[in-house]
Amino acid sequence: MKNFILAIAILFSFNAIGQSAKKNTTVTKPATNTLYSPKEKEEIKKTFLKEIDQIGMSPVVKTKYLETINKYSEKLKAVNKDKSISNTELTTKANKLIKDQNQEIKKLLTPDQYKKHKIIYNRFQNSINYRIEKR
């Protein structure tokens, strides 16, 4: 995931260099309410599902776990669509939702499984915070 974020940072720096060379050209970027492109979302989903297999959950627990993740993912999407709030407020609300999500997940998992979840999910949380900060 660090490599993914580094690659994005490099892409943005190339884009910034290219834009500085085109001073007379104005490009209007379409407004977006998403932090990730559909392709990025699909890749993140595949990576996440692959990584959570390392947690070692039973099928029943895994189903409840994914239901909880999906529930909070929908809440995060709703908060992200609210354009009346600042990036700071958005980050605060996103982190609160993730904290609430983790409290529910903690009840589902053993302490060892929860530690593994936190390691995996913290990378995604950091990515979300980075995207909010940079938009």
Rank of each mutant, 00 (worst) to 15 (best):
M1P: 11
M1E: 09
M1N: 08
K2H: 10
N3G: 09
I5P: 00
L6T: 12
A7M: 06
I8G: 03
A9Y: 09
A9Q: 12
L11D: 07
F12V: 09
N15H: 11
N15F: 15
A16P: 07
A16R: 13
A16L: 14
A16V: 12
G18P: 03
G18K: 10
Q19W: 10
S20N: 11
S20A: 14
K22T: 13
N24M: 02
T25C: 07
T25A: 13
T26P: 00
T28H: 12
K29H: 07
P30I: 05
P30V: 03
A31M: 11
T32R: 10
T32V: 10
T32S: 15
N33E: 10
T34V: 10
L35F: 06
L35D: 07
L35A: 02
Y36C: 05
S37K: 10
S37R: 08
S37I: 06
S37T: 15
P38I: 04
K39G: 03
E40C: 03
K41H: 06
E42N: 09
E42F: 06
K45F: 11
K46E: 12
F48I: 02
F48P: 00
L49H: 14
L49F: 08
K50S: 12
K50F: 05
E51G: 06
D53W: 06
I55H: 02
I55R: 04
G56V: 04
G56H: 07
G56E: 09
M57T: 04
M57V: 01
S58R: 01
S58Y: 01
P59T: 04
V60W: 01
V60L: 05
V60R: 00
V61P: 05
K64I: 02
K64M: 03
Y65N: 04
E67D: 14
N70S: 15
K71W: 04
K71Q: 13
Y72H: 09
S73V: 00
E74F: 04
L76D: 07
L76C: 03
K77R: 14
K77Q: 12
A78Y: 00
A78P: 05
V79K: 12
N80K: 09
K81H: 08
K81Q: 12
K83C: 06
S84T: 15
S86Y: 03
N87F: 08
N87P: 01
N87M: 11
N87W: 00
T91F: 03
K93T: 08
K93C: 02
K93F: 00
K96V: 04
L97T: 00
K99M: 08
N102S: 14
N102H: 07
E104F: 02
E104D: 15
I105H: 02
I105R: 07
L108I: 03
L109C: 11
T110L: 09
P111Q: 05
D112M: 03
D112N: 11
Q113R: 05
Y114Q: 03
Y114N: 04
Y114R: 05
K116M: 04
K116F: 06
H117R: 04
K118Q: 15
K118E: 14
K118F: 05
K118L: 15
I120G: 03
I120T: 03
I120N: 00
N122Q: 15
R123G: 08
F124S: 07
N126W: 04
N126G: 15
I128L: 13
I128M: 10
I128N: 09
I128S: 00
N129G: 01
N129W: 01
Y130S: 07
I132C: 02
I132H: 04
K134E: 11
K134F: 06
K134Y: 06
R135Q: 13
R135D: 09
